[in-house]
């Protein structure tokens, strides 16, 4: 699989990782859990840089932010009490929906994001939570919104930039809030054909104070469906609003067609999955339709 690999490095600090990246001139790949890289079996790889000892495995909960190190595994997210306490456990639920137990014991949050898959299941909940990321390269550390990270060329793991951590601002605790993650694959363990993460706050009269909706696997990168969010703000949460939101979702998505599903099916699923996410949010906020 990695017939050409000449060296497997296990750096113990971030600067060491960056030095190795620099020296390997694009012929190195960073590896954390390896759940994407090993399957990919890229024969051109000459060096592998293992990130799991570089001190990036942590979850730190502060007053206004939760900081998650890039090599934190999905299993860690699934089990962490700090993550359970964040947005009703949204990230834990999303992590639990990724692959199998064996995958989640290996796969890391950073790997899930840095691999650049439009179907990454951790991307949509983090987008919905307005997360930002910190990356490091030869010139230092940079913080940027997650959406911007997806837009940059360096999202590919072969680049010279290292994803350090993800920062999640604490969402508002007061009022009737609800969060939801929903995904749909062909079977229970599958890449998402569609995934959606949503958040919602309702006021005392059942009107939407604010809504957030992120969709994955139905465009080149996971994205926030801002028109849907603004359409919902201030409206009473009911079936007709959901139907309108669903229509808007179908306009927003740009799904592909391949052997896994047709474009038509993905578009229809987007509506259903987004609708279910919003409905679950409302239910968690105390409004069941």
């Amino acid at each position: 699989m990695f017939d050409r690999v000449e060296a497997f490095y296990r750096p113990e600090s971030v600067p060491e990782v960056l030095r190795l990246l620099q020296r390997s001139k694009g012929q190195a790949r960073m590896v954390a859990g390896g759940t994407d890289l090993v399957v990919e079996g890229d024969r051109s790889v000459r060096f592998l840089i293992d990130l799991t000892r570089a001190g990036l495995t942590y979850i730190r909960s502060r007053d206004t932010t939760c900081v998650i190190g890039a090599t934190t595994t999905l299993a860690d997210l699934e089990e962490s009490t700090a993550i359970h306490a964040l947005a009703g456990g949204l990230l834990s639920r999303a992590a639990a929906a990724c692959g199998s137990v064996q995958n989640r014991n290996l796969a890391t949050l950073g790997g899930n994001l840095a691999h650049g898959s439009p179907a990454a299941d951790m991307a949509t909940p983090l987008l919905a939570l307005d997360a930002s990321v910190v990356v490091a390269d030869g010139e230092g550390r940079h913080k940027m919104p997650l959406a911007e990270y997806f837009g940059r060329a360096w999202q590919n793991g072969a680049s010279h930039a290292l994803l350090i951590e993800v920062r999640v601002p604490m969402p508002p605790q007061n009022g009737r809030c609800g969060w939801s993650f929903q995904k749909f694959g062909r079977t229970e363990v599958d890449l998402s054909l569609v995934n959606a993460a949503a958040g919602l706050q309702l006021d005392a009269r059942g009107r939407v104070k604010w809504a957030r909706l992120a969709l994955g696997a139905v465009a080149a990168a996971p994205f926030r469906a801002l028109p849907v969010e603004s359409l919902m703000a201030g409206r009473e949460f009911d079936h007709s609003l959901l139907a309108e939101a669903g229509e808007e979702v179908m306009r927003e998505v740009q799904p592909i067609a391949d052997l896994r599903a047709s474009e038509e099916f993905r578009r229809e699923l987007s509506r259903v999955v987004a609708g279910r996410a919003l409905e679950e949010c409302a239910a968690r906020a105390g409004c069941s339709l």
Partner: peptide, 16 residues
Amino acid sequence: PMNPNFLDYKIFSAKD
């Protein structure tokens, strides 16, 4: 063959 792998040839897993 378009799906000669377990990513796209879906057999039943424990979860299914």
